[in-house]
Design a protein around this nucleic acid. Sequence first.
DNA 1: GGCGGGTAGGAGAACGTTATCAGAGTTCGG
DNA 2: CCGAACTCTGATAACGTTCTCCTACCCGCC
Lengths: 342, 342
Amino acid sequence: MPTLRDVARRAGVSVAAAARALGGYGYTSAATREKVLRAAHALDYHPNAIARSMIKGRTQTLGVIVSDNANPFFASVVRGIEDAVLGKGYAIMLCNADEDPAKEAIYLQTVRQKRVDGLVISPSGGPAAALRGLMDSGTPIVQVDRRLPRLATDAVLTDNRAGVRAAVEHLIRLGHRRIGILSGPRRLYTGRERLEGYLAAMRDAGLPVADGWVQEGNFKEASGYELVGRFLGRGRRPTAIFIANNLMTIGALLGLKEAGVRIPEEMAVVGFDDMDWAPILTPPLTAVAQPGYHLGATAGRLLLERLAQSYRGKPRTVVFQPRLVVRESCGAPLRQAPGARR
Amino acid sequence: MPTLRDVARRAGVSVAAAARALGGYGYTSAATREKVLRAAHALDYHPNAIARSMIKGRTQTLGVIVSDNANPFFASVVRGIEDAVLGKGYAIMLCNADEDPAKEAIYLQTVRQKRVDGLVISPSGGPAAALRGLMDSGTPIVQVDRRLPRLATDAVLTDNRAGVRAAVEHLIRLGHRRIGILSGPRRLYTGRERLEGYLAAMRDAGLPVADGWVQEGNFKEASGYELVGRFLGRGRRPTAIFIANNLMTIGALLGLKEAGVRIPEEMAVVGFDDMDWAPILTPPLTAVAQPGYHLGATAGRLLLERLAQSYRGKPRTVVFQPRLVVRESCGAPLRQAPGARR
DNA sequence: GGCGGGTAGGAGAACGTTATCAGAGTTCGG
DNA sequence: CCGAACTCTGATAACGTTCTCCTACCCGCC
C-alpha cells in the first residue's frame, strides 16, 4: 500500500507539499496540486486513516454495543444509528453482548482501546464501572433502549410502562379480568419496566394477579414457547396474556397454535414490539409499537451533538411514547367457561 | 487518557521496560512487572490500539458490508460473522450499502482507509474495480450470499437455483400448473439466480410461463404488497406463486389477506427464507430455508483462515444447500375455476 | 532600494506504541 | 578465573500522517 512519501517522491515534491495538495489546506500551486493528484491516482493511493487518527486524536468511529443484532428490534436500532452518523463521516463498530456482563466488559475494553469517538450502548445491567471509566475519559456515551440506575449519560428510551399499561388497560376495557404476562428477565431494565407497567395497570384497575399469571422468560423465542403452556390447563387460567417482547411472542403463538387454543376467543394476546409480520397473522396481532429505528437514529443524533460540541449541557433523556396498534388478537373474552375446548 | 510514558514514569522505569512488562515479551524482572502493573492499574491505563496498529500493520478489525442490517436475513449473517471472529480478537465495522453501488463504493473506500484486515461483503453488483483494488492491495475478501462474475475471492453462497427449483417442483407435484413468481431485481445476483431456478423448473416440467406471471420487485415489503395484486384478477391467474425473499413475502401476504384471497385454496404461496414467524401464520408458510447465521459464520471462518495464512490456496466457494420446509401454504390447487371468489 | 504581505514549499516534530540494539550485570561450565 | 550464555534495562528508530515552523521568492509601494 503506497504512502504519502511514495506519492510525494513520484510527484517530485516534499511530503509536506503532497499532504497540503491532498488535504486541501495551506498553500499549493496549481502545478504542484496537479502533479500530486496525478501521482496519487497513478499509485492508487489511499490515505492511512490509522496514522491520521494518531495525530488528530479522533478515529471517526463509534462503538455500538447491543445485546443481539439478530433480534430485529436491535437490528433496526443499529440501522438507525448508522444512518444518523453516516453523513457525518463516522463508521460504526458493532458488538453483540448477549446480555452477558462479562462479554459486555470485554467489548467495552475493546472499543476503548480502539479509541472510538463515542459509544451507543444498550447496557445489559452489569456493573457500571467500566462504562463510567470510559465516560470519565471523555468519551461521550448514549444509552439506548435501557438505562443504568445512576449513570448520567444521554439516553433514548421507550416509555415501556406506558406502553404496557395501554395494552393492559385496553384488554381490561374489552372485558378481560384475568390477564397474565409473559415477562422478561427482571435483571434487565426493559424486563422490569414492562412488568411494572403490567402490575400498575392491574393494581389501578383493582384486579388481582393470581399465582402463575406472571411468568418470567428470557426474551427469547424458546422461552415464550415453553412458558405459554403454564397459562393453560389451570383452573383459573387467564383469558388474556401480554407478552413482553417480539421473540417470546413468536414462541408463545407457536405454543398456543400447537395447543389448539383459539385466539382471541380462548386466549387474547397482545405483544410488545409491532413487527412487520404482525398484520399477516390470523388473527392479526395487537401490539405495542416502539420505533426501533428512530430510537437508534435519535441516539446517533444525540451522540453527534456531543461530538460536535453543539450541545454541552446536562445529560438529556429522550423518551418515545409507544403506540398501541389494535388489531384482532386482543378481542373480548368468551362468555362461556374457559377451557371448554382443548 | 494516560499513555505508556505515564505508566513508565510512575513505575520509575523506561518506556521500553513498561512495554515489555505489559506486553509480555522480552525479559522483565518480577519486581519491574509488579511496579508496572501497579502503575497501569492506578492510572487506569488502556493501551492505544491505534498506535499499536500503526507499527503492527494490522488493525484487528474486519469490514462487513451488507445491503441492509434491518433485513433479518442480513442481521443473522452479520451476527454469524461476528460470532465467528470474536474469539480471534477481531472487531467488525458494519456498513449498510442499501444495494447502492455508490454507497458501497464510499464504504469500500472507508474500510480501506481504516485499513481493515479483511472484508466480508455481500456485493450489490456495481463495478468490481474498487473491490479488486482492495484485493490487490493484499486484503483478503470473502463474498457472502452473492458473488460478482469474475472476482476471484472466497465465497459463501446458498444454492438459490436449487432452492427455488425444489419449491417450484413441489408446487408442480401438488398439481399446480399455473405458477407465478414475485422475483427480485435482475441486477442482483440473488434476484437473477432465483428467477433462473424458477424458469428452469417450469421449463423442465414443460409448463408455460404466461405473461404477467413474472413480476420483478425490489426485495422490499412494499413491492411485494404492490405487485401481488398483478397476479389476481387476470383471466388465467396463477394458482400458486413463489416469492423470492422474506420481506416481499410479508408484503404479498398482506396484499392477499386484504384482497380476501384464501391460502392455499385460491392461491398457494411459497416463500424464500424461512423466518421465525413462518410457522405461526395461518396457514403456516412453506418456505425455502437458507442458513443465514451459518453463511455468516462460515464467511468469518474462511476469512480467519486467510488472515492466519492457514489457507493460502485458490479461492474457495462454499455452497449451502437450502431446505424446503413444507408447511401448509402450498396446498393443492382448487378444482373449480379460478377467480370464483373475489 | 528596502520592506511588508502574499504565496510556495521544505524540514522536522509529534502522536503512542513495538521492536531492535547495545550495554551491563549475573550465572555457570570448563 | 575467564569466556559464554543468560537476564535485565534503557535509548532510539520506526509506523504514516498532520501541522508548525522556517526560508525563499515575487510583487507593489513608499
